[in-house]
Amino acid sequence: MVDGLGLNVAPGLLDLQVYGAAGQLFSVEPSLEALQTLTEHAFEQGTTGVLATMPTNSLDMMRAALKVGREFQRQRPGLLGIHLEGPYINPVKKGAHQQEFIHAPSVAEIDALLEVAGGVLKMMTLAPEVATPAVVARLREAGVVLSAGHSNATYSQAAEGFRGGFAAATHLFNAMSALQGREPGLVGAVYDDPAAQASIIADGVHCSFAAVRISKKMLAERLFLITDAVTESQQGAYRFRRQDNHFVDEQGTLAGSALTLPQAVRNCVEHVGLPLAEALRMASLYPARVLGLDDQLGYLETGYTADFWLFDEQLAPVATARAGELVWHSKSH
């Protein structure tokens, strides 16, 4: 029995896009140590499962991320899989991604990545306008969730992508063609497709809270929260410095966030006006649906994995349980 008297309980949070934590950036050093730091930091924040994310990088780094992800999953809990964000993106919308590594995909290259992945590649962000039907089909055959992002797709290209195998969009509004009257772009296609899901960074910097509120009205249960969290880094292809509540790269371009999922949930309650229960679902049940894991995660019910977290009235994590094993974060317990 767990005595959580005076606390709140909710299903474990799930972050489908996180790069690093506490000075360990997975996208610079894809190591077991980086994954351990990332998953431990997430666990302390009530997040029981993450997709460690590798942004556009060399193929050697992509392969290294997949290889170490496989190894980590065999040894320790907390890693749902790897999210490759690129390198098959549109350079026009590269954001903080490195231009030199961006290129068009081929089925042969995808096959090589899938062979290294051995099932650990769960999500890939790519631009619909650069993904051929053959590439999309191969990734879908392997069970990879395709997310449209870093894309300058027209509405028609994006809509065709969602009809053809794309299931989601990455960090809505950021690094994608905007919704405009004459050209609704990728944002418009996400709103318009009845099944397209979208992640959003609810920090008030990557998009305004009004944009989160409008998108919630449009997408309802299809909108889910991510942190897009990075950490300080002064080496490798991705060098970030903190600026208030977000990070920028060496050129001052907006990069990742400094969010935790509990903070994102609280922002949705305090600044977007959502009920707490719905904001919590945006960080647990809805991302579980994206990965097809909502028969195991996202509910506190018989037959589901006993992943949950206890938190106080300020949404500060007090304890987290993974597979029923509870760890208190507060020394008072």
Results as ranks from 00 to 15, higher is better:
Gly256Cys: 07
Tyr191Ile: 07
Thr47Met: 01
Phe101Lys: 02
Thr170Ile: 03
Glu109Cys: 04
Leu13Met: 09
Ala319Gln: 02
Gln73Val: 03
Asp295Ala: 14
Asp203Asn: 13
Phe173Asp: 10
Ala34Cys: 10
Gly292Leu: 01
Leu291Trp: 10
Gln263Cys: 02
Ser151Val: 06
Ala168Thr: 06
Ile102Lys: 00
Val9Ile: 14
Pro194Cys: 11
His329Tyr: 05
Ala189Tyr: 07
Ala158Lys: 00
Gly20Ala: 11
Leu219Glu: 03
Arg182Ala: 13
Lys331Arg: 12
Gly161Pro: 04
Phe166Lys: 12
Gln98Tyr: 13
Ala131Leu: 08
Ala159Glu: 08
Leu121Tyr: 03
Thr125Gln: 08
Leu223Ala: 10
Thr253Asp: 00
Leu179Phe: 15
Pro184Ser: 04
Glu100Tyr: 11
His329Arg: 12
Ala258Lys: 04
Leu261Val: 12
Met123Val: 09
Ala306Gln: 15
Leu80Ile: 05
Gly298Glu: 09
Ala196Asp: 03
Val327Gln: 12
Val145Ser: 02
Arg63Gln: 06
Gly118Phe: 01
Ser151Trp: 00
Leu16Tyr: 12
Ala168Leu: 01
Asp15Glu: 05
Val272Asn: 09
Val205Gly: 10
Ala127His: 01
Thr227Phe: 00
Met61Ala: 09
Thr56Arg: 02
Ala189Glu: 05
Phe308Thr: 08
Pro11Asp: 05
Thr53Trp: 02
Leu274Pro: 12
Arg182Asn: 02
Leu121Ser: 02
Ala127Gly: 01
Val269Arg: 00
Ala22His: 04
Gly164Tyr: 03
Leu7Gln: 08
Leu114Gly: 04
Val28Ile: 02
Ser257Leu: 01
Val120Ala: 11
Asn245Gln: 12
Asp249Tyr: 06
Pro11Tyr: 13
Asp249Asn: 15
Leu274Thr: 04
Ser27His: 12
Asp244Ile: 13
Val28Phe: 07
Arg70Ile: 08
Ser156Glu: 13
Tyr304Met: 15
Gln243Val: 15
Glu29Cys: 07
Ala112Val: 05
Thr302Lys: 13
Arg70Met: 11
